[in-house]
Amino acid sequence: MNPVKFRGGRVPALFGALAVVAALSASAQAQPANANLGRNLAAQCANCHGTNGRSVTSVPSLAGQDAKDIVARMKEFRDGKVPKATIMHQLAKGYTDEQVALMAEFFSKQAE
């Protein structure tokens, strides 16, 4: 679960204020038990994908990728929809949706 993000657009002031309250409360619910959980989970990927997701080889970097794309790719691996998968389809099954979302969120915020 990602914290709710606001994109631009004009909304009536009152609705806007309510929406902010709602977003803050949604965001609070989405907070993991430990503030560094996303960082800690993502560190497991570094062995193959590089520290903070910056790979020094042809294995794809994860740093700076859109969180939605990482989540979608992990789901494809987990569901067996990546034809030439060698290992990620096995590793992807080890994590919950929430854990994958936290890792993806962390990587999306790292400089490429």
């Binding site: 193959c48 520290t51 790979s55 020094v56 080889t57």
Partner: peptide, 12 residues
């Protein structure tokens, strides 16, 4: 991938 793994984990 194994060679790539080595280079990334050594850098890590």
């Amino acid at each position: 991938f194994a060679n790539s793994w080595a280079r990334n984990i050594w850098a890590d």
